[in-house]
Deep mutational scan, measured.
Amino acid sequence: VSVELPAPSSWKKLFYPNKVGSVKKTEVVFVAPTGEEISNRKQLEQYLKSHPGNPAIAEFDWTTSG
């Protein structure tokens, strides 16, 4: 189950709350306009370098507050 949070234009930000008793931590995933899922800052940096014209990296908020 995921919750969609505010994201930069043409992107989606999905929040996957951890299940009770789960060892997996809460996860935030950005979905690029191409449909590619980005789950960490390093991936995001690589994606933005190879896909010019996207929002600046500073516009991506990895917190769950939206």
Rank of each mutant, 00 (worst) to 15 (best):
T64F: 10
F60M: 01
T26A: 09
V23T: 14
S65A: 12
N18E: 10
V3T: 08
D61Y: 05
N40M: 04
N18Y: 11
S2A: 14
K42G: 12
S39Y: 13
A58V: 10
V1A: 11
D61C: 06
F30I: 01
N18W: 11
Y47R: 00
R41D: 09
T34P: 00
P52L: 05
A58C: 10
A56E: 13
E27N: 12
V1S: 11
F15I: 12
E36N: 03
P55G: 05
L5E: 05
K25N: 14
V28L: 07
T64Y: 12
P55H: 06
S22R: 03
D61K: 07
G53P: 03
V20L: 13
V23Y: 11
E4S: 10
W62A: 01
P52A: 06
G35T: 01
Y16V: 09
A7W: 04
P33T: 02
V23P: 14
F30W: 09
A56P: 15
K12T: 09
K12V: 09
V23R: 03
I38C: 04
I57P: 09
L48S: 01
I38T: 00
L48Q: 00
I38R: 00
K13Y: 02
A56T: 11
S9P: 15
F30K: 00
I38G: 00
G35C: 04
F15H: 08
S10F: 12
T26Q: 13
F15V: 15
E36R: 03
P52F: 04
W11E: 02
S9Q: 15
E36T: 06
A32Y: 00
V28K: 01
E45W: 11
L14Y: 12
L44Y: 02
P52G: 05
P17V: 15
I38L: 08
S39N: 10
W11D: 03
L44K: 00
N54Y: 04
S22M: 08
V29E: 03
P6Q: 09
L5V: 06
Q43C: 06
V31Q: 05
H51C: 03
P8L: 06
V20D: 15
H51N: 07
H51Y: 06
Y16K: 09
K49F: 15
K24W: 15
D61H: 07
E27C: 15
S22I: 08
N40S: 13
P55N: 03
W11K: 02
L48F: 03
G66C: 13
A58G: 13
F15Q: 06
E37R: 15
N18A: 11
K49Y: 10
P52W: 04
P33Q: 03
A56C: 07
W62F: 08
F60C: 02
V28D: 00
S39L: 11
F15K: 05
T34I: 01
K25M: 08
A56L: 11
L48V: 03
P8H: 05
P17Q: 12
H51Q: 03
E27Y: 15
N54A: 07
S50W: 08
P17Y: 14
G35Q: 03
K42Y: 13
A58E: 14
E37G: 05
P17A: 09
V31A: 03
S50G: 09
I38M: 05
V28S: 02
K49V: 10
E36S: 03
K12P: 04
W11V: 02
P8V: 04
A7F: 05
Y47A: 00
N18P: 10
K12H: 08
S9F: 12
Y16G: 04
P33C: 03
W11A: 01
E37S: 11
V29F: 07
A58P: 05
L48P: 00
F30A: 00
Q43L: 07
Y47W: 05
N40P: 00
K25T: 10
T34D: 09
A56W: 04
H51K: 03
P8F: 05
S50I: 09
P55R: 02
S9I: 11
S39M: 11
E4M: 10
A7Q: 05
I57L: 13
K13W: 03
D61Q: 07
T63Q: 07
F60R: 01
V20E: 14
